[in-house]
């Protein structure tokens, strides 16, 4: 028996809606959402312009001018009904093929890991221990959002999970690896940000002319490995 995932549908403005399957970080739930995301893509509905899977939700954007007109109901209802059919027919989740683990080098030096000291203190351990815990886990990419190619990965071991900084930084350098709650992530671009920064990867995560333009996709498994500052310099400009 497959687990049933109850959901609700509500509008996200007048040209999008959200299928909400829950409000927690859960691997099985997230894989179910990915499965539905693929089914919606495959259905190739001419009025669907974008579909955005997240942790526990899937947003679908549509072009109101293309939605089949029905005087009895709103376009939202028309789209919601169509999507309900797709979800109902997507019960059997094909067991995701064992994905290859993508390995990502990280230089966990104090120069790059600007919050290492604070994080180690907060979590009452030494820095080396914190780093080891971070790179010993295989992480799963739950969603992409915030910035182009920014992967929300989890879950971070409870012993090093740390809330976002109360005041976000004006600028976090591209390649920075951070922790926010039970999530870990890498900034593909320099950006303002509130995650606790523990290191930096020399890997370019987003290449605008590549297809797809980004290294990490929802559903990927990734593992970090530690490199020295010298190794970091030699990696510079190289891709996986």
């Amino acid at each position: 028996m497959k687990k049933a995932f109850p959901y609700t549908i509500f509008p996200l403005g007048d040209s999008a809606l959200v299928l909400e399957f829950g409000d927690e970080i859960d691997l099985e739930l997230n894989q179910h959402i990915q499965h539905i995301f693929k089914k919606i893509k495959q259905a190739n509905l001419n009025y669907v312009t974008d579909a955005v899977p997240a942790y526990a939700t899937l947003a679908v954007f549509y072009n109101l001018l293309e939605v089949p007109y029905d005087r009895e109901k709103s376009s939202f209802e028309t789209v919601a009904e169509k999507l309900r059919v797709i979800v109902e027919n997507s019960r059997s989740v094909d067991i995701a093929k064992e994905k290859k683990i993508i390995e990502i080098p990280v230089c966990y030096s104090l120069k790059f890991g600007i919050d290492l000291t604070e994080l180690a203190q907060k979590n009452k351990m030494d820095i080396a221990e914190l780093i080891t815990i971070h790179f010993s886990t295989v992480y799963y990419v739950f969603m992409i959002g915030f910035l182009p190619g920014f992967a929300y990965m989890g879950e971070v071991d409870a012993s090093i999970a740390t809330p976002r900084r109360s005041t976000p930084r004006q600028e976090v350098a591209a390649g920075s690896v951070g922790i926010a709650g039970k999530q870990t992530g890498i900034y593909p671009f320099s950006s303002p940000g509130g995650w606790n920064i523990i290191g930096r990867t020399p890997i370019q995560l987003f290449k605008k002319n590549a297809e797809p333009p980004m290294l990490l996709q929802q559903g990927d498994k990734i593992k970090f490995f530690s490199i020295t500052e010298d190794e970091y310099k030699n990696y510079k400009g190289r891709h996986i």
Partner: peptide
Amino acid sequence: ELLSSAVSMGT
């Protein structure tokens, strides 16, 4: 605190 999810222009 909410889990991150999609937003839209006008949100």
